[in-house]
Amino acid sequence: MNIEPSGEAAEYGRQASRAFAAAGGDRLAPLAEAEPERRGALVEPVLRELGAWELRPRDDPDDLEAAAALCRSAGYRALAYPLAERLARPAGLGTDGLLVVDGPAPRAPVAGLDLRWTAVTLDGRRGEAVVRSGERSLDSAVVAELDVRPLDAAGAGDVALGLVLPCWTLLGMLDRALDLTRSHVLARHQFGEPLARRQGVRFQLADAEVERGGAEALAAYALWSVQSGRAEALDDALALRLAALEAAEAVFRTAHLLHGAMGFCDESPLSWVSRCSRPVRWLPLGLSATRDHLARRLGRHGLTGLFSEAAT
């Protein structure tokens, strides 16, 4: 078994990252937040150009890796567009994307887009999701409340991919937060020298990188699990989500602390990456809900893991 993503996928990701930078880069998130209705027009042409809509991640292992790499680049550039959700679209329903939802008041970061969505709950109940118009109750303009019209209970196989791809987006955000922080502590001088010369600063950055690296390893594993069609794919997806959310807290806390007050103001890309990460981190399951679901599922059978075959 090989859980390392292929070189082609990584190259595709780099190409996508350049294309997103050329399409507006760090300006895209503020624009999306100011006018969610315009964000489709800003990024959809680039995604089309990149061949995003031709990817068949549910059918083709290479396409799945490419999709993950694309999501990671979108996260890196804080694209503020539901790319992972679109790439996870279910087979045979003719909709544009898949939204994993939970709880009585489902929401998703799909405001202002003229697209058709399928919603699926963790236990596989599917429905047609319609964005409720008018209400903007949340502080993120890209998040919308949904009305879900029930369809069937045939979505159990759809869920894992719907959870894994957004984690790749989040992983890209963590990559970016660490890159930004690394550059910041190298460039910012206090007490006559770069912050990066202080061991207290270096240790914090190192700890955050360890967290990010852990999430990256699990992301590769969960992707492989989906790819192989394993029965445990959903457990692995939830375990990835848990690890990615924990890593996100550690990474963003360190990134903010090391940026000082700068990290909380609009001009700093970190504040936008951090802000864009919130809907991904809180929807459809925040940290505690993810832990709760995972614990309940594992309570029945435990995680299978990478080395279980060797162990038996």
Binding site: R107, S140, W282, L283, G286, L287, S288
Partner: peptide
Amino acid sequence: TDFAAEVAGPAAHTELRRPLSSGWESGAWV
């Protein structure tokens, strides 16, 4: 506040505003 966000569960993660006049522990835990 971290622990509070944890025990308050999913509901805490959807409350996205708090008044400026509240303290640093307003109860909008996340």
